[in-house]
Write a protein that binds this DNA or RNA. Structure first.
Lengths: 348, 348
DNA sequence: TCTGAAATCTAAAACGTTATAGATTTTTCT
DNA sequence: AGAAAAATCTATAACGTTTTAGATTTCAGA
């Protein structure tokens, strides 16, 4: 195919540096706004022109300049993940980050990560992002029932999604693991093994999912006649050594206790050591039922009963939720629940 | 203090929306470029003016608009972390991300995260970032000896730092754990326990640190008269089930083998199970020496010998390395090595 | 053939920043 | 005091994009 330049502007076509709308404008002989509108498929540009411009754009590998777009439109094309501090559930966090980023790869959005420390003000990163418009939307993890961050974002009408529900869940996008169902599942599963005197090592009480887990286990216990105690004074986010001691103590004081439920793989490991301290023989006279994100727990402690939580699904869902909230701000917030099923038991 | 507006422009001071240079300009009665230059401490602005402008800026909470800066200067104020796919060392990854992000919080840079999958082209994310200038610098992990990403970045003179060394290390910033020293340490430590017939479960061979670890263990073994075998056909990045099988097989075929060295906590767990499969009693007739980023391994398997790798230090170092490379492009690349010490042994 | 509407394009302006060159004022020196 | 030099500030332009209003062309209808 021989290139015979005709109408297109001769003076230009300097292919120096990154191509911009100006480059396409010169190559096509059309004005810059025309090029812009053509590429955004505006109705007042003829199909013929659009086609021509799209062709040139593809050929020279035009990619819109993010700073230009951001300055003009205010859209940052950034999603910010705000990471609450977590003691030991780091694999969980890494999976969340990578799955969100993977999902965003098919969109123009970039992911940036803003962690805060236990003694930082949780509101600070959020306020910075909202006030300085550093992102188009945020994703939060480790939500509390009455989460001030969520209240603030709702008030500011800033797009967001949470990993975990809140009091205000019906008004925002979220993805959650169904910890009520998990609790129910755990109690019944232990009962099948003959364990009906159970202790629950719950998450931090201000985390919503602690409430769910407690509710689920309590209801199921009542239903099938198991006894259930919620372990006091220690939670599954605590340091492993503290968990170990607390479990050992509890089991020594309650010899009849023959089962433990726990929502975190790491905590389950600590609990297992504590149970051994108290003379329990896991799988023989005592059973532990735990959730876990990776398969390490199940692998190292084959006699601990585990059920899989697929954190990647959460990441994927949350990413999609914010992206679609941004593309259609008036649509109902996307909400998802991952329900534990038999298939996830002791997964390979 | 009573505000008595005098010289400052009356017509303006509309405090609507985010304050910009224009806002300060109107409030101060000075031209926008003057304000800009004052805030960047340019020499041709009088100290008195600078003081006045800084005061106003602080008072109204001026924060430079990133899009404006980026468009004008080309600086994105973004550091991009490119995450190579890793099978099981996710806690490692999460720690790296959060420590980098924490460190960057004290700078104007934001961290964004770009993971790629095992079957993706590792060059793609890098090329995108460099060609479209999506970041001012990148940080890479899991480097190979002859890493094409590193070669490309060197060639393009794009600022970066790596977690792990390469063939071209002297020419770029890096932080690495001293796996040679680790290997040495491990062999000697096992020898002290009387274990002198040792197998090494090395990382993937194309990872530079595999070479280091092999070198360190081999040299030390030669030095003190231990025998060392590098386990063939399986590496510490493999699936845990495969590691388990390979270790069990090796130990069955080599009854004299009484020690194992391994660079990953998760792999050590798998190895422990494999050793048990082969009838070894860890801590009694067999010892495992492993590195680990968290304390879980040591906690769950107190009879596995561990030494701490502080990944947070890596993140901190890498973040500082790229930031200072950006502020002083001609300075020698920052290079750091974390050397294992007695103090890190079986840390709490 | 002419009028008005529809279709299609362009010109100008703006988002917030900084570099450059030029303008103005102040200081210094003779 | 007057001229040159230094100090200090301003005007202009540009980065790449999109929105708005306006210009031009095309076409249907009379």
């Amino acid at each position: 195919m021989t290139e015979t330049p005709q109408k297109p502007d001769q003076k230009a076509a300097r292919v120096i540096g990154k191509p911009t709308l100006k480059t396409i404008s010169k190559l096509s002989g059309l004005a810059i706004p025309t090029v812009s509108r053509a590429l955004s498929d505006a109705p007042d540009i003829s199909e013929k022109t659009k086609e021509k411009i799209r062709e040139i754009a593809a050929e020279i590998g035009y990619v819109p300049n993010r700073a230009g777009v951001r300055l003009r439109t205010g859209k940052t094309l950034v999603i910010s993940l705000i990471l609450a501090p977590d003691s030991e559930l780091m694999p969980h966090t890494a999976q969340l980050i990578t799955s969100i980023a993977q999902t965003l790869r098919e969109t123009p959005y970039h992911l940036n990560v803003t962690p805060y420390l236990p003694d930082d003000d949780p509101m600070k990163p959020i306020r910075q992002i909202v006030e300085n418009r550093l992102a188009d939307a945020v994703i939060l993890n480790r939500t509390q029932a009455d989460d001030p961050r969520v209240a603030y974002l709702l008030d500011k009408k800033f797009p967001f999604a949470t990993h975990g529900r809140t009091n205000m869940s019906e008004r925002h996008a979220y993805f959650d693991y169904d910890n009520t169902a998990f609790g129910d599942f755990a109690v019944r599963h232990l009962a099948e093994k003959g364990r009906k005197s159970i202790v629950l090592l719950a998450p931090m009480r201000n985390q919503v999912y602690a409430t769910h887990m407690i509710q689920g286990t309590l209801d199921a216990a009542t239903d099938i006649g198991s006894t259930l105690t919620v372990l006091d004074g220690v939670n599954s986010d605590e340091k492993i050594e503290d968990i170990r001691k607390a479990i050992a103590l509890h089991l020594r004081l309650n010899p009849e206790c023959d089962g433990l439920i726990c929502g975190s793989g790491v905590a389950a490991m600590a609990a297992a050591v504590g149970a051994a301290d108290a003379g329990r023989n896991i799988g023989v006279d005592f059973d532990i039922f735990s959730k876990e994100a990776t398969s390490i727990l199940r692998f190292c402690h084959p006699n601990i009963l585990t059920i899989r939580e697929d954190v990647s699904e959460a990441g994927k869902f949350l990413a999609n939720a914010v992206v679609s909230a941004l593309s259609d701000p008036d649509a109902a917030p996307k909400q998802g629940l991952q329900v534990p099923s038999e298939a996830d038991l002791n997964f390979a």
